[in-house]
């Protein structure tokens, strides 16, 4: 959540509810809609860490609203997030978010992200090949786990290829 909010704020300053709406409209109904309280808690932590700052904006007949903007430290943290390869199948969605969000912020283009991720997957596959070769041929659990990881990686690579074909 932290990096998602930072990415959105790197695009433009926003208040909490706008961030919630942005996440919903970018990722659509497939994305579990974030709880507004959770967004404010996350923003509070980001502010405490110095990654965002806020200004109070007066509103007529309503309480002031806080508009958040990203700091240099926040941008650096976001840059690290965008640049580091994304681990494993469970966080595949995180890679997809990078793929969708990073180009909007001008931090990276999709081709570079996809190429970096492909190399990362292939180096994981290289490790798995070595593990498979070194594994006890009678240890079915280990071999199946390796094979499962390989199949996940195969799917990830096929899907990267689809992204490369379909996304501008």
């Amino acid at each position: 959540m932290r990096q998602l909010l930072l990415a959105l704020l790197a695009k433009e300053p926003a208040h909490g509810y706008e961030l919630k709406q942005a996440l919903e409209s970018i990722f659509g109904s497939a994305y579990p809609s974030p709880n507004i309280g959770q967004i404010y808690v996350t923003l509070g932590r980001l502010e405490k860490d110095g990654y965002v700052r806020s200004v109070d904006v007066e509103q007529a007949n309503r309480p002031n609203k806080k508009v958040y903007y990203i700091t240099a430290a926040g941008r650096e943290s976001l840059e690290n997030w965008v640049e580091e390869p994304t681990e494993g199948p469970r966080v595949r969605d995180e890679f997809f978010m990078k793929l969708v969000l990073a180009p909007m912020t001008g931090l990276s283009d999709r081709m570079a992200l996809i190429n970096r991720q492909r190399r990362h997957y292939l180096s994981l596959m290289r490790d798995l090949n070595e593990l498979a070769e070194a594994a006890d041929p009678d240890n079915r659990v280990a071999l199946l786990l390796i094979e499962g990881a390989m199949l996940h990686l195969q799917a990830d690579l096929d899907w990267l290829e689809r992204c490369q074909e379909e996304l501008p």
Binding site: R126, N129, Q154, D158
Partner: peptide, 8 residues
């Protein structure tokens, strides 16, 4: 296309 081959 086979990631296992490419991984070698």
């Amino acid at each position: 296309h086979d990631a296992r081959v490419a991984g070698l």
